[in-house]
Design a protein around this nucleic acid. Structure first.
Lengths: 204, 204
DNA sequence: GATAAAAATCGACACCATGTAGACTTTTCG
DNA sequence: CGAAAAGTCTACATGGTGTCGATTTTTATC
């Protein structure tokens, strides 16, 4: 009991349930790594946390809800990280910086990102989350392309459409590479960067 | 009973089971379209065919096996189609022809191709099938890039690695576009073609 | 620090899809 | 035709899911 009146100015207590919720998501993430989504059962998660299935259903209504919460947590982290990144003026630098940041994101959160992609079809909420995330990236890529002199617009050879294709290229390439190793991821990044630069007209 | 000794030189009879197998795969494909993979149950398939679950298990050991067979059937069709396509000498023409063919493939088989991609992780056999298919495409793209003057090799800015990234770009872009409409698919194709041409150094 | 309300936990149950087994029927072919 | 092979059915055992009501623990308040 440190201090007389604990600094209750903001938020004294953390509900026990808050801790549990985090524990559930952490366990879920760990199980996803070992067993994969399909093999993972609600009972497994509960057991990992040290409670019964019944108790787990108090927090989340299904395995899908648990994973959706996990994806939400991760994706919010991505958004923060993206907002916090300074936007370089010079297109070449912007591209290099963006790819570097993307490598870091996939190194840290590859597992959950892959899971999100896999479940985008099946779980509508996750689909929303991921497609919104993609839109952020597409907007960023579009901006860089335009600054590099690519004509703005949605026609097939204009910035917006190209950005979309480049985004999917990066997503898919990183998806596969992140399953292999950090080295592969770095190589994949270099390749994507090269194609992006070329598409932006920055490499002869 | 046509003819005296039926021309048995090759294959007189078609087993009843052969017809059933096809019916099962057809029904599975139809159900995949309405309900999606997860919602589709073994009982649904059996009912669609007009037999009981028990009978279906005589042909396939699980829902996964049915879908794997369906993917196999489709993918073999893709391979045939790809082998049959004449290889143009001139890179520009080769690229246009390849993209046109790809649009046709996705128009015809988009549903099963998307399913194959979705299940690549979960069902190892489908993963094999699809990754082999991708390798064929990557090899083809690599060849075109090299003929267009891109240096051969596996370094990040050389033909092989670039082909891989371009293949994933096309896969993912078509995956999404084919869920929308034929028009979107055509537009997506134009965008991918433009990026491919640019990457090959065929557009200033 | 006692206490009542809210939060959390448990165990049991009903449900549904899966996959298997064994008996039965139909098809195939000599 | 008749026997073997191929195909089909019903019944059952299993395992994961989600719900419910009873019970215990936590939290906030006096």
């Amino acid at each position: 009991m440190p201090g007389h009146h604990p600094v209750r100015s903001r938020r004294t207590t953390e509900r026990k349930g808050d801790v549990r919720e985090r524990a559930i998501l952490d366990t879920c993430e760990a199980l996803l790594a070992h067993k994969g989504y399909d093999a993972m059962t609600v009972g497994d998660i509960a057991q990992g946390v040290g409670i019964t299935r019944g108790a787990l259903y108090f927090y989340y209504g299904s395995k899908q809800e648990v994973v959706t919460a996990l994806v939400t947590r991760t994706v919010e982290h991505l958004w923060e990280r993206s907002r916090a990144t300074a936007q370089a003026d010079e297109p070449r630098q912007a591209i290099t910086a963006a790819m570097q940041r993307t490598v870091e994101l996939w190194n840290e959160h590859g597992l959950v990102m892959r899971t999100a992609i896999d479940l985008s079809l099946t779980v509508p909420e996750i689909g929303e989350l991921w497609s919104h995330t993609a839109d952020l990236f597409i907007a960023a890529i579009t901006a860089v392309l335009e600054r590099a002199g690519i004509q703005a617009g949605a026609a097939p050879d204009q910035a917006s459409a190209m950005a979309r294709a480049l985004c999917w290229m990066i997503e898919r390439t990183f998806y596969h590479a992140s399953q292999e190793s950090r080295e592969k991821l770095q190589e994949a990044s270099a390749t994507c960067e090269h194609i992006w630069l070329t598409s932006a007209g920055l490499i002869t």
